[in-house]
């Protein structure tokens, strides 16, 4: 990488402290480089950003206290960013409550118990209960694949699986059907995953999925541990080649 010229470097304040970053970098990038915690769920390094989960919303004082997603907002000269406040923390907790209320997120009997990003966020952000009655959707569990299982009732619709399958694997086996509260993940023409002629059985979707919706067959409660270091590796290799 060539050293950026001076004009591309922006200085900004995060939680009262001075930081600087390249104009191509996002607030989230700068926060991570400096070990400032920001909760994220749909974002994962190596895939395109969606800006969908809204957990990384930060308040920009210099923009009329507007809330913007840190993952999609590029740094700008002189902005003052707040990563935590009572208001933001309340919003984040409530977003988690909404997620928990949307499906079956009974951790006690989940293969990802203890290795789940949603569960970890709930603890980290101090969500101690869900005020909204569970919506109790009945979604089909797809057990047809010989190696993997898709439990749509545990899905958080982060669309990481859709993006990794399209952007990295190039198969685009996954997509989302319907819309709003009825949206859910499908393979091909909403046909059984096991009979898919586009799935390469690479398992990338399983490994980058943040919760226990996409898992390896045969894992018992708490056994499903995911590895997604490959994603950054592939992304870096590609960048180098381009």
């Amino acid at each position: 990488m060539t050293a950026p010229t001076r004009s591309h470097i922006k200085t900004l304040k995060i939680d009262g402290k001075d930081y600087s970053g390249h104009e191509e970098e996002t607030i989230l990038d700068i926060a991570r480089q400096n070990d400032l915690f920001l909760p994220t769920l749909c974002q994962i390094d190596g895939l395109s950003v969606a800006g969908a989960c809204r957990l990384c919303l930060v308040e920009v004082k210099t923009w009329n206290n507007r809330l913007v997603p840190a993952c999609t907002t590029h740094v700008e000269e002189g902005i003052e960013v707040l990563t935590h406040s009572e208001r933001i923390d309340n919003y984040r907790r409530m977003i988690l409550e909404l997620l928990f209320s949307e499906g079956n997120h009974v951790c006690a009997v989940c293969v990802s118990n203890g290795n789940c990003e949603l569960q970890a966020l709930a603890q980290k952000l101090g969500m101690d209960h869900v005020r909204f009655p569970n919506l109790r959707p009945v979604r089909v569990v797809d057990m047809t694949h010989d190696r993997f299982v898709l439990d749509r009732n545990r899905c958080v619709l982060c669309a990481r699986c859709v993006r990794v399958c399209d952007e990295i694997e190039g198969a685009h086996t996954w997509d989302i059907t319907g819309r709003g509260i009825d949206a859910r993940i499908i393979s091909d023409l909403d046909t059984p995953w096991g009979s898919s002629d586009t799935c390469t059985r690479c398992g990338k979707c399983v490994n980058i999925y943040p919760v226990g919706a996409l898992v390896e067959k045969g894992s018992a409660i708490g056994e499903m541990v995911k590895h997604h270091d490959f994603l950054e590796y592939i992304a870096e290799m590609r960048e180098a080649r381009e």
Partner: peptide, 12 residues
């Protein structure tokens, strides 16, 4: 276009 994408569009 991927068939899953076609299905996604048709049901959106």
């Amino acid at each position: 276009v991927a068939s899953s994408q076609v299905y996604g569009v048709a049901t959106f």
